[in-house]
Simulated assay, not measured.
Amino acid sequence: MQLSSRVLQLKTSPVRKLVPYAEKALENGRTIYHLNIGQPDIETPEEFYEAINNFKEKTLKYSHSAGLVELREEIQKYYKDLNLDYGLDEILVTVGGSEALLFTLISLFDEGDEILIPEPYYANYNSFYDLLNIKVVPIKTKGENGFHLPSKEEVQKLVTSRTKAIMFSNPGNPTGIVYRKDELDMLNEISKENNLFIISDEVYREFTYGENEAISFGSYKDAEDRVIIIDSISKRYSACGARIGAIISKNKEFMNSIYKLCQARLSAPTLDMVGAAALYRINKSYFVPVKAEYQKRRDILFTELSTMEGVRAAEPEGAFYSVVKLPVENAEEFCIWLLEHFHIENETVMLTPAEGFYQTEGLGKDEVRISYALKEEALKKSMNILREGLIKYRTIIEK
């Protein structure tokens, strides 16, 4: 008996690849500060749980395949506040942003079709690209210029007859990039000139810092038939476990195809949708302290990294991640060494090797992705462990 080649070719997520080493460290009594995963420690708003507790229907039934009407109405209002008008038939609820992306790729791509995506990019996208045999064509970006996009000419030359879409996250995971208007204008021009879809992952929209602002691609009126927005409550309301996302698009043919897929999996979980609707009703002032907290953590991270010898990092502009170049040849080996051999007062850190966020062979080998979704005290301790770990590791390696 043999499993499908489709599933056998799937790679382990780089975010979770080192879990066995972490489990061993825990068995040895270590405390681990998890800088490897974007799991917010901000409390999920109480309104979510209250809505579920107040759900009194005697039978927990299937919900509408498109999503609860009350939830889609709240999502509609949310976008209205952003000056974006979507009908209820232009909003479909999914089981997290991951299902939204999977359904989108299934609807747009045939085997061998190509997708353009700025590199480095969220590594878990690869599971879907591999399953569907979609060829990833990376748009190379560099940490020294904050991972901003190259020129239009450089991007345009990557387009072929098999290219179907340009995809990106804004704000970006793993880089913390927030794309400027001229960059989005350029992508809009390329998509229009080459008849390409734009897949815009906007799940971190609220989390931008300083003067940076995340512009939704939904604001491009001349691109309405080409734009697909991927959204989720996971990071916005610190509700990752609720698994409620959405696909938003004005392309009727596309949305009809997505609806068929929604019907095939019957419905998203009813209780999670009830709770999600309550989250969308929360006053927008909720984001003020949350954003301020993430910005404080961002500042701590960047300040600490800036003082470490040989470490280079672009200041994150949004989300809560940073791609960091370390003074080591192999970041994955260093990450494993931290878990297996290094601790300060029985505490260590878990990082994500960044090589898995690149498509281009050899890139990211000396980099890690750090998530700063940790409380201030834990983040400061983590930075000290990283600093001292690098000093000791380099001493060992140089010997």
Rank of each mutant, 00 (worst) to 15 (best):
2 Q>C: 07
5 S>T: 05
13 S>C: 08
15 V>H: 11
20 P>T: 03
21 Y>T: 01
25 A>D: 00
33 Y>S: 10
41 D>Q: 15
42 I>G: 04
42 I>Y: 10
44 T>Y: 01
44 T>H: 01
45 P>K: 06
48 F>V: 02
54 N>R: 14
58 K>T: 08
73 E>N: 06
73 E>L: 13
85 D>K: 13
91 I>P: 00
100 A>S: 08
103 F>W: 09
104 T>G: 08
109 F>V: 07
120 P>E: 12
122 Y>F: 13
131 L>S: 15
133 N>A: 11
134 I>C: 01
134 I>D: 00
151 S>G: 04
152 K>S: 11
155 V>K: 02
163 T>W: 04
165 A>P: 11
166 I>H: 08
179 Y>T: 15
182 D>R: 15
183 E>H: 00
184 L>M: 14
185 D>T: 13
187 L>V: 04
203 V>C: 09
205 R>V: 12
205 R>P: 01
213 E>M: 11
214 A>V: 05
217 F>M: 15
220 Y>A: 06
229 I>S: 15
230 I>D: 00
231 D>H: 12
238 S>I: 06
241 G>W: 10
248 I>E: 08
254 F>H: 08
255 M>R: 10
256 N>D: 11
264 A>G: 05
279 L>I: 03
283 N>T: 07
284 K>G: 08
287 F>C: 03
299 D>H: 04
310 G>E: 10
327 P>E: 12
333 E>Q: 08
344 I>E: 11
345 E>V: 04
353 P>N: 06
353 P>Y: 01
353 P>F: 04
363 L>Y: 08
364 G>I: 06
372 Y>Q: 09
376 E>R: 13
379 L>K: 05
386 L>D: 00
388 E>P: 06
389 G>E: 10
391 I>S: 13
392 K>V: 12
393 Y>V: 04
399 K>Q: 13
